[in-house]
């Protein structure tokens, strides 16, 4: 009897805590949402009120009718860049990770250290010199300069390698007896049993690309249709300092794409983190 009441109380406290955390987590965004519809004089008006007294859509008009930037086009091109990058990144890094996890070849140890240690090189160290490299390769002002340089990642290779280590070897042996080649095993089997880590890494690659700001500023100089969304958000946030509603509209609308993608893959991500974990 006593134990069960204790348990019940524990459950209630647990639920209350979870509700509190959910509230804290969502609060900043929820608080900002209605202000998208506030006029510039109302937005920081005291006393505080959450909902606007007068609902206006001027802020949206400003963001969507910018004469020099096309907000929706930027969301589109940023999404395109991010999706392509996710696909390529998963392919390239998983291939490498599989090679490291399940294939033996000379200089493996050296190659592993070589590729793995690239994850400790901060972007700021190679900022200027990377632009020089992509310029030498004639990639500036193409969609490829936004995609290719960030595809391969030491950390992602490391992550997948750890995951592949956990895949039982007998699966592989059975497949080989069935006559599959190493490449065949990777493409037919490993890509299929790796949904969870693929979704987790895929999401983080997507976010990395979707949120990039400095790299596009430096590498896209002429093609306005390739301007990335965070470039616009930043431009607007410095241009409309006195009109925060506009800044909020630009910021919050840009979150719709990652949010919807997350909703779609949510189940995989949340469960995936527990399955893949860190080994």
């Amino acid at each position: 009897m006593k134990a069960s009441t204790q348990k019940k109380i524990g459950n209630v406290i647990g639920k209350a805590l979870m509700c509190l955390v959910i509230l804290i987590v969502l609060f900043p965004v929820l608080w900002a949402l209605p202000s998208m519809f506030k006029g510039r004089s109302e937005i920081f008006e005291l006393p505080l009120h959450w909902l606007p007294n007068e609902w206006i859509t001027d802020n949206f008009k400003t963001v969507f009718n910018m004469p020099d930037y096309n907000y929706l086009l930027s969301i589109g091109s940023t999404t395109l860049v991010s999706v392509l990058s996710v696909v390529l990144s998963l392919l390239v890094n998983m291939m490498a990770a599989y090679a490291f996890a399940r294939v033996d070849f000379p200089f493996k140890k050296f190659l592993w250290i070589y590729m793995f240690s690239t994850m400790f090189i901060p972007g700021i160290t190679i900022l200027l010199t990377s632009v020089r490299v992509v310029s030498f390769l004639n990639m500036l002002d193409t969609i490829w300069v936004l995609i290719i340089p960030g595809i391969a990642s030491g950390y992602n290779i490391f992550f997948f390698r750890q995951y592949f280590y956990g895949v039982p070897k007998y699966i592989e042996e059975a497949a080989m007896i069935d006559g599959l080649s190493k490449g065949g095993i990777f493409f037919r089997i490993y890509t299929r049993i790796s949904t969870a880590p693929m979704v987790i890494i895929g999401m983080s690659v997507f976010m990395g690309y979707y949120n990039s700001f400095l790299w596009p500023v430096m590498t896209i100089t002429k093609k306005t249709e390739l301007y990335q969304i965070m470039q616009l958000v930043r431009t607007l946030s410095s241009r409309y300092k006195g009109n925060y509603g506009v800044v909020l509209v630009a910021t919050l609308i840009s979150l719709i794409i990652p949010f919807s993608i997350y909703c779609f893959f949510q189940k995989y991500i949340v469960q995936g983190i527990s399955i893949a974990g860190i080994k």
Binding site: D68, L127, L128, T129, V131, R132, V134, S135, F136, L140, F213, L214, V217, M218, T221, K222, R234, T235, S238, R239
Partner: peptide
């Protein structure tokens, strides 16, 4: 004329990278 407007906080770094890689305006 091929023109481009850049916010002040990114202008310096963008120009530095462009001059460094031989793509200055």
């Amino acid at each position: 004329i091929d023109y481009r407007f850049i916010t002040e906080d990114a202008f310096g770094d963008a120009l530095a990278a462009a001059q460094d890689s031989g793509n200055a305006p």
